Amino acid sequence: MLESLITSKTRVRLLMKLFLNPESSGYLRELADEFGESTNSVRVELNRLAEAGLLESAPEGRTKVYKANKGHPLFPEIQGLVRKTLGIDRLVESVVTKLGEVSLAFVTGDYAKGVNSGLMDLVLVGKIEKDYLQGLISRLEEELKIKIRWLVLSEGEFRKLRPNFESQDSLVVWKREE
């Protein structure tokens, strides 16, 4: 979807990476390596997005680190577009809200990094009927044209494994209000 609105693939990748998970950041060479792009093309897009105020930059040693400007008036809209492009909005609506006792849902792997690889890793915490979940996931995979790998954890299992998830990129997509 974004690719039809924004013709620069590099700009789309930057928006997906930095706006899907606004806590993520990156510097020029790291982003160029991750995207398989030249540093020049990434630099041009970083500069354009920073000049528009959509990205913030800060020096870290000899490098400049970029991240999404959460204070920009268009931040919520751009983040919403990215989530819709990746199908996360439908994931939450179709799966999490219909399962009952879900306390936390998050995405790990490529999607959490803002990379649309066609494989989404979803972790759900709570009491969940796995057969019902599988049916919902199957329908969503067809609709979004992606593969969803899922893992269901009880509250206790999640507490034990939490450090493992915190050490990798993860994006919380739903959390039960306490």
Results as ranks from 00 to 15, higher is better:
Phe19Asp: 07
Ala68Lys: 02
Ile128Arg: 00
Trp150Lys: 05
Leu49Met: 15
Ser25Phe: 07
Ile148Cys: 03
Leu28Thr: 01
Arg176Gly: 09
Lys17Thr: 15
Ala105Lys: 05
Asn21Cys: 05
Thr10Asp: 03
Gly100Leu: 01
Leu5Pro: 03
Thr85Glu: 15
Arg162Thr: 08
Asn164Trp: 14
Leu122Ala: 07
Ser41Pro: 00
Val65Trp: 04
Leu18His: 06
Leu54Glu: 02
Val152Lys: 00
Ser4Gly: 11
Met16Trp: 13
Leu124Asp: 13
Ser41Gln: 12
Ser41Tyr: 00
Glu141Asn: 02
Tyr111Glu: 14
Tyr66Asp: 02
Leu5Gly: 08
Lys145Leu: 08
Glu51Lys: 13
Val12Ser: 06
Leu31Pro: 07
Asn69Phe: 08
Pro76Cys: 11
Ala112Gln: 03
Ser24Leu: 15
Gly80Lys: 03
Trp150Gly: 04
Ala58Gly: 13
Glu177Val: 12
Arg176Pro: 14
Ser38Asp: 06
Gly114Cys: 03
Gly126Asp: 06
Gly114Met: 10
Tyr27Asp: 03
Gly53His: 04
Asp33Pro: 07
Gly114Glu: 02
Ser57Met: 15
Gly135Met: 01
Asp169Asn: 14
Ser94Tyr: 03
Gly53Trp: 11
Leu171Asp: 08
Glu142Val: 14
Glu178Leu: 06
Asp169Met: 05
Val42Tyr: 09
Gly80Trp: 05
Trp150Cys: 09
Lys160Leu: 08
Gly80His: 00
Ala32Asn: 10
Arg83Glu: 15
Gln79Ile: 06
Gly135Tyr: 04
Lys98Cys: 04
Ala68Met: 00
Gln134Trp: 04
Pro163Leu: 09
Asp131Ser: 10
Val96Phe: 00
Val65Gly: 09
Val12Phe: 02
Gly61Leu: 08
Ser38Ile: 01
Met16Ser: 12
Ser57Glu: 15
Lys9Asn: 11
Phe35Gln: 02
Ala32Pro: 01
Val12Ile: 08
Leu31Cys: 04
Ser57Asn: 10
Ala112Arg: 05
Glu155Gly: 02
Leu74Phe: 14
His72Ser: 03
Gly114Arg: 01
Ile146Thr: 12
Thr63Tyr: 10
Ser38Pro: 06
Leu55Trp: 03
Ser25Gln: 11
Arg29Phe: 02
Glu77Leu: 15
Lys160Phe: 10
Asn69Trp: 07
Leu119Ile: 12
Ala50Asp: 15
Asn164Gly: 12
Ser25Leu: 09
Leu28Lys: 12
Leu144Gly: 01
Leu49Arg: 02
Pro76Met: 11
Val44His: 11
Ala52Trp: 00
Val44Asn: 13
Asp131Thr: 14
Glu166Asp: 14
Leu49Phe: 09
Phe158Leu: 10
Asn47Thr: 15
Met16Val: 05
Glu141Gly: 05
Ile148Gln: 07
Phe165Trp: 05
Asp169Ile: 03
Lys127Asp: 15
Thr39Cys: 04
Ala32Met: 01
Lys17Val: 14
Glu129Ala: 10
Phe158Thr: 09
Leu136Tyr: 04
Met16Asp: 13
Lys70Gly: 00
Gly118Leu: 07
Thr108Asp: 06
Lys147Cys: 00
Lys113Trp: 04
Pro76Leu: 12
Phe35Pro: 06
Ser103Cys: 08
Thr63Ala: 10
His72Cys: 02
Pro76Arg: 02
Glu37Gly: 02
Ala68Cys: 07
Leu153Ala: 05
Leu2Glu: 10
Val82Ser: 04
Tyr111Gly: 14
Glu51Val: 09
Leu14Tyr: 04
Leu14Ala: 07
Ala112Asp: 05
Asn69Lys: 08
